[in-house]
Simulated assay, not measured.
Amino acid sequence: MTRSRAPRPRKDALRKPNGLDHLAVAADAQTHPGQWLHCNDYRTGQAAEHVVRMIRDGRIRSYQPQAAYETYAAHLAGGNAAVWVRYIIGVETKPMPESLWVRVPDYGSQPGYSGVRIRAVEIYPYCPACGGPRGELRNDRFVRDGVHLVRDAWDNACGHRDTYPGVIAEAHRLSTRRAAGDGRKSLRGVPGGRYEAAVNLLARAVEENVRVSAHTAVELLEEAGHKAAAVEVAAFHRVLMGRSNVSARSALLYLNSQDEEALKTGRAGAWVDGPIRPGNHERGRRR
Rank of each mutant, 00 (worst) to 15 (best):
E136S: 02
Y164K: 02
E136C: 01
D140R: 01
E136N: 00
D152A: 00
G159K: 03
R144F: 07
F142Y: 10
I118Q: 13
G159N: 01
R119A: 11
P133A: 09
R151Q: 06
Y164G: 01
G131Y: 15
C158I: 14
L149Q: 11
C158G: 14
A169Q: 06
C130P: 04
E122R: 13
A157L: 09
H160E: 11
V150P: 05
L149P: 10
G135E: 12
R144T: 11
H148A: 02
C127M: 06
G159A: 06
T163P: 00
Y164V: 03
N139E: 10
H160G: 07
C130N: 05
E136A: 01
R161T: 15
P128Q: 08
C127T: 11
G132R: 15
P165I: 05
Y126T: 14
L137A: 05
H148Y: 03
Y124N: 03
I168L: 10
R144L: 09
F142D: 08
V143D: 15
N139M: 02
Y124R: 14
R134C: 12
Y164T: 07
C130F: 03
I168C: 00
I123N: 05
V121F: 06
R134I: 15
V121P: 01
V150R: 08
P125S: 05
D155P: 00
D152V: 00
V121T: 03
G146D: 03
E136G: 04
E136T: 01
V121H: 00
R144I: 06
G131P: 13
G132Q: 13
A157V: 12
P165L: 08
A120E: 09
D145R: 02
E122I: 04
